[in-house]
Amino acid sequence: MSQPTYTFNAQVRNDMGKGASRRLRREGKVPAVLYGAGKDAVALTLEHDKINNAADHEGFYSHILTLTVDGKKIEAIVKDMQRHPFKPKIIHLDFQRVDAKQELNTSVPLHFLNEEDAQKAGGVVVHHLNEVEIAVLPKNLPEFIEVDVAGLGVGDNIHLSDLKLPEGVSLVELTKGEDHDQVVVTVSAKKTEAEDGEAAAEEADKE
């Protein structure tokens, strides 16, 4: 299945400061900055609604995007996004340029498979991580990493070092030492009705 593509038109922004940014937002634009690959940072503006719609899709955060700036196509990834605290609006975006020859560090989501097997066996699947930071060349950037929990029993878990990584992908956390081999997912025992009742009683006593 072909992967979706994300292409956005962007304009170079010369007006800086909070006042200018507020004016842009009133005009339906979102301010952004593009940096990386050994080049100077460039302030940009993009159409808010197109970015906001794309941001509803998981792939927007893990795909290489194409920004068309002054007629030139630039490949980049989303490094940071600031949202309005209660309105469905994006306040600011950070993009990092992509160099085909240089590894990039970025986060990709985890997709958990066969959770129903553990549930049928009387367990509860507990996610400790929902995304991981990877180092990878742009050509090998995966949309997500799969975590298969089939065959796990109650008390079993999967660590970072247990993940089956796509070709050319490494986990940044594991480069920091063995003590960074975090637990990704655990299968815990289901609570009995008696245990649930005791927990509720304890909460009532605290109140």
Rank of each mutant, 00 (worst) to 15 (best):
159 H>G: 08
159 H>D: 03
91 I>F: 11
108 V>S: 08
199 A>V: 11
162 D>I: 08
28 G>S: 12
15 D>I: 05
123 G>R: 08
110 L>N: 06
138 P>H: 06
23 R>N: 09
102 Q>D: 01
18 K>S: 14
23 R>T: 05
156 D>C: 11
114 N>E: 13
184 V>W: 12
111 H>P: 00
64 I>C: 02
117 D>C: 01
132 V>G: 10
149 V>S: 09
80 D>M: 06
45 T>C: 04
48 H>Q: 15
43 A>W: 01
103 E>L: 10
101 K>E: 15
86 F>Y: 15
161 S>F: 13
77 I>P: 08
201 A>N: 05
86 F>K: 03
39 K>I: 00
123 G>K: 08
36 G>N: 10
93 L>P: 01
169 V>P: 04
133 E>A: 13
125 V>Q: 11
94 D>R: 09
32 A>M: 05
64 I>D: 02
158 I>N: 01
180 H>V: 00
152 L>C: 09
20 A>S: 13
188 S>H: 12
139 K>M: 13
139 K>G: 00
190 K>M: 13
93 L>D: 01
199 A>W: 11
48 H>V: 06
192 T>D: 03
194 A>F: 14
96 Q>F: 04
172 V>Q: 10
59 G>H: 12
78 V>Y: 09
34 L>W: 01
205 D>V: 14
147 V>G: 05
26 R>K: 15
194 A>Y: 14
186 T>Q: 15
204 A>K: 10
174 L>M: 12
119 Q>M: 13
87 K>M: 12
59 G>I: 05
132 V>F: 03
32 A>L: 11
136 V>P: 12
153 G>P: 06
198 E>G: 00
47 E>R: 11
122 G>R: 13
111 H>E: 10
54 A>E: 06
3 Q>V: 03
178 E>K: 14
87 K>L: 15
10 A>D: 05
164 K>W: 02
98 V>R: 08
109 P>C: 07
204 A>T: 04
104 L>H: 11
140 N>E: 08
161 S>G: 00
82 Q>G: 00
117 D>V: 05
153 G>V: 04
